[in-house]
């Protein structure tokens, strides 16, 4: 009798996604304004060769590539976790208001001029606001609140953050400040330094750890909250872990890259079929897929209109929205 071993398909999926992500990562390092050959670039990454090329590789390309991968990983992973928890393919990490609040923190830093106080002033301010949003959600939704309370609280927090962001724009002292805010909100990983990586990485890593270990509980939740709890899953600690993990990963991503949408929504949606519907497989698959997708979008930013400073968030939405529509079109019979 033919029997599928659990994990057979998963190994193939892992391999394919790894190859894709590594390919995108490499392309991101070597495609850019300055043409640098592969051997020169590689040597420069490790600090040898032409000092100019070393600077370009180590201080411009490497942080940009690393941040694109980290942001994509965070958003993909958090999206898969959120969809698994809410058992809803329309859920996305921004739902709990963390990204909106982080953006508000950044905008306030830009508006008040705090952003230029020191290099990391803006991302730190964004992180503080993201943490504040989680605190507020925990306070309002309660540790044992239902998932519906969690969503509604998240929507309220998001709406309030969006209103305050508009207010900051409204009251911006001059058109330059306003345009700076608007451009920041579009999301980008260009012109970031390794210090941004070092700020975001520890926070994100904690978030990744919290999210990737949710697999067991999310698998059980496939059968509904009651059945999952009877299978030994503690829903209240699962919810807390999800909330803190998403806040850390997505808050840090927004803090260093601005608002990049659609990754957390589209990537799990594309990969669900390949993960054979299993939420636990989808977690790491979406993490890798998210990294590959943001790396690809950031490549597109550089290749399509190199002179016009196209923003990552804009390109991501331009890719993401039609892709999402296509997926809905393909699966509408299943959804109906």
């Amino acid at each position: 009798m033919l029997k599928t071993r659990a994990g057979d398909g998963a190994v193939k999926l892992f391999g394919a996604l790894m190859v894709l992500t590594v390919a995108m990562f490499t392309a991101s390092l070597f495609v850019g304004y300055a043409a640098i050959s592969l051997p020169d670039g590689l040597a420069a990454l490790f600090g040898s060769g032409d000092p100019l090329i070393v600077t370009v590789m180590q201080e411009i390309r490497l942080p940009r590539t690393l941040l694109a991968a980290m942001v994509g990983l965070s958003l993909g992973l958090a999206g898969a976790a959120m969809q698994g928890f809410l058992r809803n393919p329309l859920a996305e990490p921004g739902l709990i208001g963390v990204s909106g609040s982080a953006a508000l923190g950044a905008v306030i830093a830009l508006q008040t001029g705090f952003a230029s106080a020191f290099l990391l002033a803006l991302p730190v301010s964004a992180l503080v606001f993201a943490a504040g949003a989680v605190g507020l959600i925990l306070l309002l939704a309660g540790p044992r609140g239902s998932s519906l309370t969690l969503i509604l609280t998240g929507i309220a927090v998001s709406a309030f953050a969006a209103a305050l962001t508009s207010l900051a724009l409204n009251l911006s002292p001059n058109p330059y400040a306003a345009s700076e805010i608007v451009f920041w909100l579009m999301g980008s990983v260009a012109d970031r330094a390794m210090t941004h990586v070092w700020l975001a990485l520890p926070v994100m890593a904690l978030g990744w750890l919290a999210l990737i270990t949710l697999g067991h509980g999310l698998d059980a939740l496939t059968l509904g909250e009651d059945a999952a709890e009877a299978l030994g899953v503690s829903l209240s600690s699962l919810r807390l872990q999800l909330l803190l993990g998403t806040a850390a990963a997505v808050g840090a991503a927004t803090a260093v890259a601005g608002a990049v949408g659609f990754v957390g929504l589209v990537v799990p949606h594309i990969l669900r079929r390949f993960a054979e519907g299993r939420p636990s497989t989808l977690l790491w698959a979406s993490a890798l897929g998210g990294a590959a997708m943001v790396l690809a979008a950031d490549l597109a930013v550089r290749v399509i209109l190199p002179d016009r400073d196209l923003k990552l968030g804009v390109v991501m939405a331009l890719i993401g929205a039609p892709l999402f529509l296509h997926l809905i079109y393909k699966t509408r019979r299943e959804i109906a």
Partner: peptide, 28 residues
């Protein structure tokens, strides 16, 4: 969970998993 299994009235299978995978959730 090792002492008692629970079959709720509301029948939920949230994701398109194979029958074998759904049944295997009982081993969690």
């Amino acid at each position: 969970a090792a002492q008692a299994a629970w079959l709720p009235q509301k029948r939920e299978i949230a994701w398109p998993m194979s029958v074998e995978r759904v049944v295997a959730l009982g081993r969690l």
